[in-house]
């Protein structure tokens, strides 16, 4: 991805997705979790960016999410930034420019994202409330009731999103110049 003005288009897409999130009714809850469109979209796009673009895209998306849905300014900014950079760096290193690398890179990355998000959310909750325990029912219960269902829902959202997004990305790529050798 070499045309950096596309970062602006992606940021606009993030604004639209963040507000579209409000359209989802509570009846789509599965195992207590709601589908989250934004983290999947950000990581999917970032996996095909350079790491500098991914850093900017991640932090802007995260800060906007903090303003609309978050409680602590900077929490999702930090989280999205690092994972976007991670997605941008992991793909080329592991799979050398294959088109289908998001399918392999993103699931473990989404699982790691859920683990890190839940850990820091609990730490912040303890810091703010000044009491309580990190995992009230143990980490095993936390993994089964929060992390795995959220990861599963992220993967379902990814399955719906990946084909149309990659198709749009392909259409946005600059076409190669045709050379006429004389």
């Amino acid at each position: 991805m070499h045309d950096r003005k596309h970062v602006v288009y992606y940021c606009i897409s993030v604004l639209i997705l963040a507000v579209l999130q409000a359209l989802l009714p509570q009846s789509v809850r599965m195992l207590g979790t709601m589908p989250q469109l934004l983290p999947v979209f950000v990581l999917l796009i970032a996996s095909r960016m350079e790491k500098e673009e991914a850093m900017v895209f991640g932090i802007l998306s995260g800060i906007f999410f903090d303003i609309v849905y978050g409680r602590y300014l900077g929490f999702y900014g930090l989280l999205y930034m690092f994972f976007a950079v991670g997605a941008a760096m992991a793909g080329p290193v592991l799979l050398r420019e294959k088109k289908w690398w998001p399918c392999v890179v993103l699931p473990p990355l989404l699982f790691l994202y859920c683990m890190v998000e839940s850990f820091f959310a609990r730490v912040l909750a303890l810091y703010a409330s000044k009491t309580g325990t990190l995992y009230a029912y143990g980490y095993g219960n936390h993994l089964v009731t929060r992390i795995l269902p959220q990861t599963l829902y992220h993967l379902i959202v990814l399955a719906f999103m990946i084909i149309p997004v990659l198709w749009i990305l392909k259409k946005l790529e600059p076409k190669p110049m045709i050379r006429y050798d004389v």
């Binding site: 790491k51 850093m55 932090i59 900077g74 930090l78 703010a128």
Partner: peptide, 21 residues
């Protein structure tokens, strides 16, 4: 340069989180 910017942004975000908490 990239690493430097990443560190600065991380520190800034962490400060924002600590303040907004």
């Amino acid at each position: 340069i990239f690493l430097f910017v990443l560190i600065i942004l991380s520190v800034l975000m962490a400060v924002f989180v600590a303040i907004s908490a």
